[in-house]
Each structure stands twice: as structure tokens, then as C-alpha cells.
Write a protein that binds this DNA or RNA. Sequence first.
DNA 1: CGCCTATCGATATTTTTTTATCGATTCTAA
DNA 2: TTAGAATCGATAAAAAAATATCGATAGGCG
Lengths: 206, 206
Amino acid sequence: MKTEISLSTIRRLPIYLHYLKSLDVSQPNISATQIAGALNLGEVQVRKDLASISCGGKPKVGYEVHKLINELESYLGANDENSAVIVGVGRLGQALLEYDGFAQFGLEIVAGFDVREELFGKNIGGKPIFDEKQISGYVKDNGIAMAIITVPASFAQSTADKLVSVGIKAIWNFSPTHIVVPDTVVVKNENLAASLAVLSKQLKEK
Amino acid sequence: MKTEISLSTIRRLPIYLHYLKSLDVSQPNISATQIAGALNLGEVQVRKDLASISCGGKPKVGYEVHKLINELESYLGANDENSAVIVGVGRLGQALLEYDGFAQFGLEIVAGFDVREELFGKNIGGKPIFDEKQISGYVKDNGIAMAIITVPASFAQSTADKLVSVGIKAIWNFSPTHIVVPDTVVVKNENLAASLAVLSKQLKEK
DNA sequence: CGCCTATCGATATTTTTTTATCGATTCTAA
DNA sequence: TTAGAATCGATAAAAAAATATCGATAGGCG
């Protein structure tokens, strides 16, 4: 199927992938009903989501688990632009550099950048840390398209501007501020405090 | 106005709040048009969102900035259940313990829990770290309703089960696994790797 | 083999969210 | 003091997402 896949669907695909991988290998097939039950989703929704990336299951037996995993991985991971850099190697930046779940999606954080001299040349999570001044060269030389911003809020927008100017096309911003970028660039503002506030709000509404 | 506020709207409220706070104090009023322009949203959407929590602005002049901030803060922060604990004091847990943006929403992370003895009694970000065995008592004694899970994936579900059993009502899960909880509990699964994968996907679709 | 059940995929319906339109209100200024 | 522009709030329309319905098909079983 080749219609446009909605963002809501794309967001659920990694969840399916993860769940399928957690299954016992001895289970060759799985039904949408079962997936829906395990993940607390509607079974029709699961079928629709899977229909958008899979070539289909069989009535009564469901989908082949390994085939589905392949299809999900190839959809999510088939991506040339899969390297990212981190700007701002504080606690959070370090946590992300050491986080080992990215590879599952064919993604890799390849380097960190900071302004603090004492970090230059260090290795964190096996990734080198460089002087922030070198970002431009590094990004251009290596054709990097994605960047993660974990600098203090007051530097977030200027960092984003700089990244955009050197050719970054996707930004994941963890600074507690909302950055604005040109339409040609994809940005996800991840405000942790705001997320917790929303959760707290949901809790209260119950 | 007292109609149910949609989750999409609630998610945008912290963004408005943050933006308003970033404004020059000398600006007493602001229009939906201006907010929409700065944040890249539709101006009607901004008006509708604000209408749900504010008692209104005036034509031609817009909204009063300080009043709007108050209204947003009181909506987002007026919450008794505003203390959270963190389970799993690794890099990410530490980063969150030191993160200072939560107070803005009237939220506080009050303690961390881990299984590693060498952490017991330590202070991180001014917050005490305890033995995970003490969670139950702590949560009950202090009436904590929210918990953040930053343990390795393989312990995430069991940690969640335990938290639910001691009375936690909202869980923010950072382990790269999808946890399932009873309907009475609010959960947000925050899979960092999956988020980056989605961003990467969006980038590719362009 | 023929019936029953689980499940798929497609289409239709409902609900939710976003966007557009328009009359009413308030300020500015001639 | 009246014309004009900016902006609000409400209602309507459109778009997107979630959910329900239903015929078709594959396997199990008498």
C-alpha cells in the first residue's frame, strides 16, 4: 500500500515493533486482536496501521511475526539519513550518548559537542566529544542531517539557528524552550517539564 | 468556560505559558495573532485554546499577558498531586533529578530510588536517594501519586506493577519498553529511541 | 465435505481536531 | 464623533483520526 501514512500511525509503529520482538520465538503467528489486547489499542486500529506497511496477514491465523518485524524494521530503519549529533553534553546529553536503544532503529548518535574545554577529546558511550566550534565542519564533512539539542534554554534558539545554517534538517530539542525553525526543517520540541505537567493534569482529570 | 479540554489543547498550554513568560515585561498585552506567529500555530487554534482556560481578551488589544500567565499557571499547576519519585537512578534518572524546569509547573521530584547500595543516602540535585525496597513506605507515607521509571527495560514492567500496587496513579516510563497498567492509572510511555526514529522518518518523508 | 469460528481487509460511520468565516467590539485617529 | 482597522468569540465547514460494520477467506472439526 502506498498512501500517505499518518503521523499518528508512524508513532505507533515502533510500539508494535518492540512488542513483536518481545514475543517468544516459538510463536510464528499473531493476530491483530492479540496485539491490540497486549498494547491496549483498538484491534481495527492495529489492522489499519499494519495494513499501511505490511503485505498482509491471513484470516484465522493472523500475521507472520518475523515477516512483520522485517517489514516494520525496513520501514522504520530504511533510511540513509540515520546519524545524529548532540549539542550540549550535560547530564541529559550524556544520558543520550550512552543510551543504547537507538541502534534498534538503525540510528546512531555519532558525536557530541559542547563549549566546555574539559570535555574535548573525551569519549562518552564510545562517542567523541568535540568543541562546539567544530560543528559546522563536522556536519558538512559527514553529511549529518539530524541534531539533538541539550543545551541550556538560553542557548537553544541560537544553537538551532546555527544548526539550520550548516544544513541540519531535523532537530530534537530537549531544552525547556520552544524553538522555531524554517518550514524546511523538522523539529520536535521535547519539553520534559511540560510533559510531566500534562501527565499530572491527566491524573487530576480522573 | 467549563467544557472538557482536549488533550491536544492541554499539550499546547505549557507552550503558550513558556512563550508568554519569555516576553518583555514591558509588553502588557498580546494578541492571538502574535502568539500564533511566534509559535507557528494557527491563530484560531490559539484563540480556541486560550478560550478554554481564560476569561477572555479584548478586541484590538488582545489578552493581558500577566493575567493569561496566571490563568495558565493556575490551570496547569493547581494540583495537589504534584510530587513525583524516580525509580532508577542511572544517567537519565540523574539528569531528571537535576533538571530544574519542573518547578515552573508546580511539580517536584522529591526522591530517587535504586537497587545499588553505593547510591543510598546520596543527594542528587538536592534530592535524596533511597533503597528501592523503601518505595512502598515512602509513597504511602508521603501520599505520592506520580512516578518516573528509568530502570533497565527488563525491570520496567515489574517496577510498574509494584508502583501501581502501592498506590501510584500516574507513571512516566522512560524504559525502552511499553508498559501496561490498569485503566485506573495514567501512563505515558516515552521511548526515546522510538521518538528519534519517528523524527528521522518525518525527515525522510520530506 | 460442509459448517463454524477467528480473523482479515474494505467501507462506512462517528468522533475529534483543525481551519475558515463572519458579525461584534474596541481602540485610533481624522 | 464617525470611519477604519485589529482582534475577539462563536459558529460552520473541512480534515483527520478512531471506531464500527460486514462480507470474504482460511483453518479446525464433526
